[in-house]
Design a protein around this nucleic acid. Structure first.
Length: 478
RNA sequence: CGCGGGGUAGAGCAGUCUGGCAGCUCGUUGGGCUCAUAACCCAAAGGUCACCGGUUCAAAUCCGGUCCCCGCAACCA
């Protein structure tokens, strides 16, 4: 990887049928860390997120609320975009699937796939439960009956749909995975998707009858159909770069890295890749898959009342502490848990180890040397290499662990050298110790810039040429 | 026998590929220190490595089986 190359990263687009979820907060924070890290390396970065706004669920929610779907989607898009301030995010693209340019991109994409012979019309059997008055899917069936209405028979209906020739891309997808062992991170997810593709692919439906569900992008040349929301939504990754207009950003930044949850593995690393192949476009550079968050040890659900609201915890602890928690407490490649108790403990950890270190060194430097220390050079190349590896593996937890090793070392050094005593015996020696500590703190703050940007910047501000004393970085909570 | 992941100290995890004293962070307990946000440093306690069996001088690790949890199981965003 060239340090000066352009870098593109995107989250999945959250579906706007509910408020922002802590799980999406995790995803977008991880993407933000990657974006910030790459920017700090000197790369030019595009960081994309946005909202997925079409489909049946949105349509139904809007009707329920007595609103136009667009009006409903507008309100939710705003709620999601507000995460930017709350979590201190640095995305510079926010694509909405109802944006005019995205709609044009989806239709252009459809046309190309169609011209390449990958889209065809087929009769599709739906299962319909009279009790629910809804179509139901195979996974909702229990012993061939609807779970909520087991005494009703399932009706079968025929409907004409457009299909995408997913099956045609089986070999090419396997080739993609085999020639690119880091295509999906972590590696067990690559194995999972490879097994899935090897087990045989079936073409998937990519349209819906407009008279049943009008809230979608019209299929080019067939006004009876709208695109199925998945097909439309995935295209955001390139419509946001103005692919449809042969845009400069697309030409200079695609392909990029995609961050997604484990439930999205299939869509991102197989379906979307096949779609790109069909359209004759380069496949994604890499897909990073994160885990799910449980709350107090249990799956989050409204009925348990344990749903974690990201805005609420940011209000209590601040963006940096929440970022820190999600990045260090969660295993980066697997599921993790959120609990109020752990959040408190992690906050204390920040205050006691990092906050206190910054405070005590600044205080001594000012009392003994009026904040004037010597310039010292320390070789951090080993540590930097370690951190780079962690980031390359998207192992945020290990990355933070490694930084905190340095914080621990610094606190230990103070204990061993006792500059507060040393200054009475040998002023120069004390100055040297403090100068080295200050340089270590600068390194630590620098490494923390992607993780807890606000705090890291404040530390760097205080540890300039003159060391400044300031208020506690993480004030004690009651 | 659908696919994949997981079960290791009170909590969160590493270690398993390649067998060799069971480790890290947090919490708890005891001691030390006073520069600092009752912070920091040192030490200790705490584990049948889910369970059963096998291979081996030696198993958390390899092999066979069982139980439990999670995601996916295709048109569900």
């Amino acid at each position: 990887m060239n340090d000066k190359e352009n870098f593109y990263i995107t989250t999945t687009l959250p579906y706007v049928n509910a408020k922002p979820h802590i799980g999406f907060a995790l995803e977008i924070i991880q993407a933000d860390v990657i974006a910030r890290y790459n920017r700090n390396l000197g790369r030019s970065v595009i960081f994309n997120t946005g909202t997925d706004e079409h489909g049946k669920k949105i349509y139904e929610k809007a009707v329920e609320a007595g609103k136009e779907p667009q009006e409903y989607a507008d309100e939710y898009a705003e709620k999601f975009d507000a995460l930017k301030n709350a979590l201190n995010l640095t995305y510079d693209h926010f694509i909405r699937t109802t944006d005019e340019k995205h709609i044009r991109a989806a239709q252009k994409f459809w046309n190309i796939c169609s011209e390449n012979g990958d889209i065809y019309k087929k009769n599709y059997k739906t299962k319909y439960c009279v009790g629910c008055e809804l179509e139901i899917t195979d996974s909702e069936l229990l012993d061939g009956k609807c779970g909520t209405h087991p005494n009703r028979e399932i009706e079968h209906k025929n409907e004409e749909n457009y299909f995408f020739k997913f099956s045609r891309y089986q070999d090419k997808l396997i080739e993609l995975y085999e020639s690119n062992p880091n295509f999906v991170v972590p590696s067990n997810r690559l194995l999972e998707i490879k097994n899935f593709v090897e087990s045989g692919l079936q073409d998937f439906s990519i349209s819906r009858l407009k008279k049943k569900m009008p809230w979608g992008i019209e299929v080019p040349g067939d006004s009876d159909h709208v695109m199925y929301v998945w097909f439309d939504a995935l295209i955001n990754y390139i419509s946001t770069l103005d692919w449809q207009d042969d845009g400069k950003e697309f030409n200079e930044y695609w392909p990029g890295v995609q961050v997604a949850g484990k439930d999205n593995l299939r869509q991102q690393s197989a379906m979307w890749q096949a779609m790109l192949m069909s359209a004759g476009l380069p496949t994604s550079k890499q897909v990073f898959i994160h885990g799910f968050i449980t709350s107090e040890g249990r799956k989050m659900s409204k009925s348990l009342g344990n749903v974690v609201d990201p805005y609420q915890i940011v209000e209590n602890y601040g963006a940096d502490a929440v970022r820190y928690y999600l990045l260090r407490e969660m295993p980066s490649h697997a599921d993790g848990d959120y609990s109020e108790k752990r959040m408190n403990e992690r906050y204390s950890e920040l205050a006691n180890q990092l906050g206190n270190l910054v405070g005590r060194v600044a205080s001594m430097s000012n009392s003994y040397f009026q904040g004037n220390l010597d310039q010292v050079h320390i070789d951090f190349s080993l540590k930097k290499k370690q951190l780079k590896d962690d980031m390359t593996n998207y192992d945020f937890k290990k990355y933070v662990d490694h930084i905190f090793e340095s914080i621990s070392d610094a606190n230990e050094t103070i204990e061993k050298t006792k500059p507060f005593k040393l200054v009475k015996e040998d002023e120069n020696a004390a100055k040297k110790v403090l100068s080295e500590l200050a340089e270590n703190i600068r390194f630590i703050a620098d490494a923390l810039l992607p993780i807890i940007p606000e705090t890291a910047e404040e530390i760097l501000r205080r540890y300039g040429k003159l060391i400044l004393v300031g208020d506690p970085l993480f004030p004690k909570k009651d």
